[in-house]
């Protein structure tokens, strides 16, 4: 009998713990994005064809030049990517070098997209089968990585860059520059 009572109280405690967990999770903002496990790791090797004629293609070796740079993943077919275009331009004006990878995209679509929404990118590689997206551990588009001067992935920003994110990204760039 005593054992039964102890068992039952254990169950009560477990249930209370469960309710506590639920309550805690309900208060947490739901973040469904999958974060990359590559933060702190060197950039995977790649060498991509140009996404359109206006800019050269992109290789992983373009990053290890001593300067921290941004790597933006986008697609002309992705609506949120249009939303973040002004912020990318702001980052460029603030002195950041931004490279990009166009995912599953046709050259003429990329050209039209950049014509309408602006082109802050130095180099743009094309990834037709999301291969580099997977290599980077990126969950989708848009997504922006900070790569430090030694070619290491320092920071990942998932989703649209809003105006609030611009100073954060600049700060991360600076930190990547001083840290390495």
């Amino acid at each position: 009998m005593r054992q039964l009572r102890i068992t039952l109280w254990i169950i009560v405690v477990l249930a209370a713990g469960l309710f506590g967990l639920f309550a805690y999770q309900l208060t947490q903002p739901k973040d469904d994005s999958v974060r990359s496990a590559m933060i702190g790791e060197p950039l995977p090797q790649f060498d991509l064809e140009p996404a359109f004629e206006g800019r050269p293609g992109l290789a992983s070796t373009d990053f290890a030049n001593g300067e921290p740079q941004l790597l933006n993943l986008f697609g002309s077919w992705c609506i949120p990517c249009r939303v973040e275009a002004p912020q990318l331009e702001a980052l460029e004006r603030a002195g950041a070098t931004i490279h990009a990878i166009a995912l599953r995209d046709q050259p003429q679509d990329v050209a039209r997209f950049l014509e309408i929404y602006g082109n802050p990118f130095t180099r743009i590689g094309r990834d037709d089968i999301s291969e580099i997206q997977f290599a980077l551990g990126a969950s989708g588009v848009p997504e922006t990585f900070v790569i430090d001067g030694s070619g290491r992935i320092a920071y990942q920003h998932i989703g649209v860059i809003t105006e609030r994110d611009v100073p954060i990204l600049l700060q991360e760039l600076q930190r990547a520059g001083s840290g390495s």
Partner: peptide
């Protein structure tokens, strides 16, 4: 809804 890429799927 989200627009789709016109790129055909990977082989």
């Amino acid at each position: 809804l989200i627009a789709q890429s016109t790129m055909p799927p990977a082989p």
